Simulated assay, not measured.
Amino acid sequence: MPIDGGSGTSAPFEQARASLESARIRADLVVTSIPSPTQVAPYSIALAGDVRQKVHGEDSELGTGRFILLHDPEGQPAWDGDFRVVCFAQAPLEAEIGTDPFLAEVTWSWLTDALDARGAKYTAASGTATTIVSTGFGELAEQGTGAKIELRASWTPTDLDLAAHVEGWVELLCMLAGLPPAAEGVSVLSARRAGRD
C-alpha cells in the first residue's frame, strides 16, 4: 500500500514516494504514515516511528521520532534544492547519561554516521541536539530524576534514493533507544503498512 501524503502530481515526488516505500525497516520499530504539513511545501510525506520493547507483557515506549519529506518543485533557497528532509528523534536516558557533556555531539554523529553508512547523499545538514534532565517533586516525587535526548535535524537529499535516508533515521531511533545496530530482521516499509491496514 502506498505511503499517504501530498496532493496533486509531481513526477519527482512520486519517484521519491516509491523510494521511501522500498525502505527496509527494522522489526523492532513500528513505522506509520501520519498527516503531513501542508503549509511548508506543495508536497510532503510524514512518517512516525516508535521503538517498542515488551516489558512485563506490556509495550513500553523506548524512543519515538518523525520523518518528513518536503518537496517544492520551484526550490527554496534555504534548502539548497527542491527536496528537504526534516526529522525528529527522542529517547529517554538514565539521569547520569543525560549530564554527559559530549552527548549532543555523539547524538549528531549517530545521525550522520547512519546516513553515511547507508549511502544517503545529502547537503546543507543542520540541527540541534537537546538533553533534558528533570526531577519530580510533590505528587511527582516518585518519578525521581530522569533525562531524555531530542534531536531535530534537516538536510537536502541530492538524489531521489530516499530509502537510504529513512533507513538512516530508523537506525538513529534505534541507537538512541539503546538497541544494537541492525543486521537482520528488517522488513519493507510498504509491506509493514499493508499488514496493519
Rank of each mutant, 00 (worst) to 15 (best):
S44V: 06
G119K: 03
L173F: 04
L20F: 01
E21I: 07
C87G: 11
D159R: 03
A95R: 07
A11G: 08
G5N: 05
S19Q: 05
T32V: 15
A191I: 14
L69S: 01
A117G: 12
D197F: 14
V85C: 05
D161S: 10
V40K: 11
T64G: 10
G49F: 03
V86G: 00
P180Q: 12
C174F: 10
S33A: 09
V166Q: 01
P37I: 10
E74I: 12
A147I: 08
V86N: 02
L47E: 00
T99F: 15
W79C: 00
P157R: 02
E171C: 03
L111H: 01
H56F: 15
W169P: 04
A16C: 10
A11W: 10
R193T: 11
T128W: 11
E171A: 02
A117L: 13
E105L: 15
I97R: 04
V86W: 05
L70T: 02
E105S: 14
I97A: 11
P73V: 07
L69Q: 01
G146R: 08
I97S: 07
G65Y: 02
G119W: 03
S19K: 06
D116Q: 12
D4H: 11
G49E: 00
T107N: 06
E139D: 15
A125V: 15
A91M: 08
